Computed example of a mutant assay.
Amino acid sequence: MKDKTIDYILRATWQAVSRMYNEEASKYGATMATGFALLSIDKDKGTPSTSLGPKMGMEATSLTRTLKSMEEKGLIIRKKNPEDGRGVLIYLTEFGKEKRDLSKKTVLKFNESVKQTISEEKLQHFIEVAEKINELIQDKNIFNYTENPEKESTNIK
């Protein structure tokens, strides 16, 4: 991936990871989004539906479709939040907990495979770089133009 832009490398890598997880999940009639949702829902206390989207980095419409599908498959149930009658808590069913364990094993297997191939030092550098990129984006330190942005040039080759 020499001479590729950083964003290209990130996107291509994420697409490969996403494709891998979706291929694995399809063996069980699921998707990566379903597995991620299963892992994001507190298995004992449930999770407010309003906090699930931000936790997963998912848009509301995509999350709504995913949750509807999960409910139809018997993975989750929705209950009114006893502390806030307007809110809804998402709980895993027993079947959902079984599938959550499967999702967890899948993620841990991926992590273990990477750790067996890449040194601890390189992984630590990767994590530090990813955290720094996230920080730059969250702090809006990338596109904070002081002049007219059209005057800025890009040198992408």
Score class of each variant (00 low, 15 high):
M20P: 02
F95V: 14
K4H: 01
Q116A: 06
L136T: 00
E23V: 08
T50L: 15
E71F: 02
T50V: 15
E150T: 12
D42F: 00
A16S: 06
E71L: 01
I90E: 08
F95G: 12
S26Y: 02
E135I: 00
R100H: 02
G96W: 05
G46H: 00
S119I: 10
S119F: 08
A37P: 09
Y8G: 03
T106H: 04
S119G: 09
N111M: 15
A130K: 08
V17K: 01
K122C: 10
N148Q: 08
L39S: 00
T5S: 04
S18C: 05
S69R: 15
S153M: 14
W14E: 13
Q116D: 11
R19T: 10
R11I: 11
K80P: 10
A12W: 04
I137F: 11
Q116W: 08
K97R: 10
E150G: 03
K2Q: 10
D101K: 11
I90C: 04
E150V: 13
P48D: 14
T47L: 10
T5N: 04
R86L: 04
N81Q: 03
N111I: 14
D139R: 14
L102P: 03
I127N: 05
A25V: 01
K4S: 00
S49P: 04
K105A: 11
R78P: 00
K68H: 06
E121S: 13
H125I: 15
F143Y: 14
E83N: 11
S113M: 07
P54H: 02
V88M: 09
V129G: 02
E128S: 06
S62F: 09
E120K: 15
M1S: 05
F110M: 11
D42N: 11
E121W: 03
G46Q: 07
N141W: 05
L39K: 07
A12D: 10
K73T: 00
K97T: 04
N144A: 00
I142K: 04
M32A: 12
T64W: 02
T154K: 15
R19N: 12
F110G: 01
V88L: 00
N81G: 04
K105W: 02
R86C: 02
R86P: 04
L89H: 07
A130C: 07
K55I: 09
G35V: 01
R19K: 12
I127K: 12
R86T: 10
E98L: 09
E131W: 10
V107M: 09
E152I: 06
S153W: 10
S51P: 02
K140L: 02
I137N: 10
A130M: 09
T47H: 01
T13E: 11
F143K: 12
S18E: 14
L102E: 08
I77D: 09
V107F: 05
I142V: 13
N155S: 14
K132Q: 02
T13I: 05
M32Y: 07
I76P: 00
T34P: 01
R65F: 11
I76A: 07
L136W: 07
L63K: 03
T13R: 02
R78W: 04
P82G: 05
M70K: 03
T61K: 15
E150A: 12
E135Q: 13
M58R: 04
M20V: 07
K27F: 08
K4C: 01
G57Y: 01
K45R: 15
K115F: 01
L136S: 09
T106I: 07
E131L: 12
K97C: 06
K43T: 03
K115L: 03
T34E: 13
